[in-house]
Structure formats: structure tokens, C-alpha cells
Design a protein around this nucleic acid. Structure first.
Lengths: 143, 143
DNA sequence: ATGGCTGTACTAGTAACCTAATACAGTATA
DNA sequence: TATACTGTATTAGGTTACTAGTACAGCCAT
């Protein structure tokens, strides 16, 4: 449950990005159901309305589709869509950091050094996310 | 005026990070005055109260100090403080991106590829920030 | 058909961030 | 002293994100 209520990014967006990651990683496969709104709300200690909003966003993106009374399912091309959305989110964060660094007059070598430092720190602190399995088959084929 | 009212990060924090960058880059030097609250509010098209909040935060961090009736000035060790705060902000963004990427099952090579792509894209789009001069003496000495 | 799931919809309330307007206090200069 | 800058403080109002509670509607198994 990687949701941080104190983050500046809205919870529903965190959920959307979380689902993107799960689909990209192959945890949720096309035509398989996502966790029910209520179940995920309980798991994340979040209001069901917040989860619903996230699922609406996923449907708007074409990553998922809804069958009333049955649940929300991963779309046929959901894996591809989710992958590109995931990469976009990642790059967005990277670009924000790079913008900040450039504004501070930092050069590319320094920026790369900071990135490497972050890469190593996250490795040490990566004892969270992944509620069902700590080791997953890491997809390794960038477009 | 790099302030984005539509961003999820509060305007006052954007201002704080902006000032950090200016001090780190040597635009604002120790014991020199920062722009007045009202002047910066006009420049950024923002409410003076928002700028005041940013300046309060800078003072709380020890980056700046206030002399009532005179203005807000860069602290003696403001450059060092601002530099570390800038780097922390940059790394925070990087770590957010890395967390997202790992949650999507992406491996280090892919993550580095995305980072390089971001680095190049920002270079092309870097025709903003820096209100007074496009080229500044780039500090190049990381701790 | 009843019960238990699913998603959907609506209203109300809270908190954070920001805006707006105003008033006050300290400092410098003419 | 008057003026014009500085920062400070207070009150009110708006928007967004989220919470909370409730009610409704579709699907399915018993």
C-alpha cells in the first residue's frame, strides 16, 4: 500500500500510478478484474470515493473498462497503455528534478551524480510496495 | 517567473525552491536583499501573502533573515544551506520517479534510459527560467 | 426471490492553499 | 515631519481534494 496521504500528489493519482505499475509489471493482466472499489479502499485505508475516482480515470485513459455489477477489468491494450503512462510519470518526475537542478546552476555531471545517489538510496529503502509478492518477473524491454 | 499555479506543489514551495536555486547559482549572495515581498508578488502574478509564506519558510530554514522595515536578506551560510536544500529537492523528485519505475517492474538499465531521455528533452525545452540572464556561471563542485 | 457482492450517484463537511482587502509597524529619505 | 518604501498581521472568501454517509442499480448464487 504505497499511498501517502501527506504527499502533494492527490491520492487518486497515486492509485492510478500504482495500478499502472501493477499492470505494467504483469500483476494485473488484460480482461482480469482489478480489486473492487471497496476492497481496495479498505486495503489502502482510503475512502471508496477516492478509489472510484482513480478507476474512472483509468477508464478514461483506456487502461480499464467497467462492467456494472461485475467489476472493473484491465483493457485488452491496457498493458501497452499502462506502460507508456508509467514511463510518462517517471519521466515527469525526472524532468521536474532536472529543471530544479538546472535552475540552481548545476551541470550535467553533478545532476548525474545526484541521480546515481538517488538510485542507490532507493535500492536500500525498497522494502515496501508489492503487497502480494516481493519478487516479480521484471519486464525488461523498453520501447 | 517559473511559478505554475496548476502544479500540485504549492506556489509558496515553488518560490522557496526557486530562491534556493538563485542563491545556489550565486544570483543572490549572502547579506544581499531578496526581492521585496510586494515586488516579487507582482513579478510572479501572485498574492503577497503567498510570497510572505515562502520567505517565512526560508527564514525558518536559516537560508534568509529578516530586518523589519528593511527587507529579507540572504543569511551568511545561506549559500550552503540553499545548496543542500536544492539537492534534496532534486533527489526527492528523482526518488519519486525511481519508486514509480521500480513499482512497474522496470530495471536499472531501463530507468537510466528514461533518465537520459529526460535529460535531453529538458535541454531542448530549457528556454525558460532565469529571468535576468540565460547564461550563469555554473557552479560545478558537488560535495 | 433473497442476500451478497459489484459499480454509481448524491449531499454535506473538513482541511489545505490561495486570494483579497485592510491595517499596522519599522526604516530611510526629503 | 511627511512620504514611501520595507515586513507583519488579521479577517474573509473561494477552490480543490478528500472524507463520510447514504441510497440506488446491476449481476449472480443460493
Amino acid at each position: 500500500m504505497p499511498v501517502d496521504p501527506h504527499s502533494h500528489v492527490p491520492i487518486y493519482e497515486q492509485i492510478v500510478e500504482h495500478i499502472h505499475g501493477r499492470i505494467t509489471a504483469g500483476v494485473f493482466r488484460p480482461d482480469e478484474p482489478l480489486p473492487s472499489i471497496r476492497a481496495l479502499a479498505i486495503e489502502l485505508l482510503v475512502n471508496p470515493n477516492t478509489v472510484q475516482r482513480a478507476y474512472q480515470e483509468l477508464e478514461r485513459q483506456g487502461v480499464a473498462y467497467t462492467q456494472k455489477g461485475l467489476g472493473v477489468f484491465v483493457a485488452a491494450n491496457g498493458a501497452i497503455s499502462a506502460r507508456s503512462m508509467s514511463e510518462a510519470s517517471v519521466c515527469e518526475r525526472f524532468e521536474q528534478g532536472i529543471d530544479l537542478a538546472r535552475a540552481a546552476g548545476l551541470g550535467d555531471p553533478t545532476i548525474r551524480r545526484l541521480f546515481d545517489r538517488s538510485l542507490h538510496e532507493v535500492r536500500e529503502t525498497s522494502s515496501r510496495h508489492s503487497t502480494n509478492g516481493p519478487s516479480l518477473p521484471g519486464e525488461e524491454a523498453s520501447s
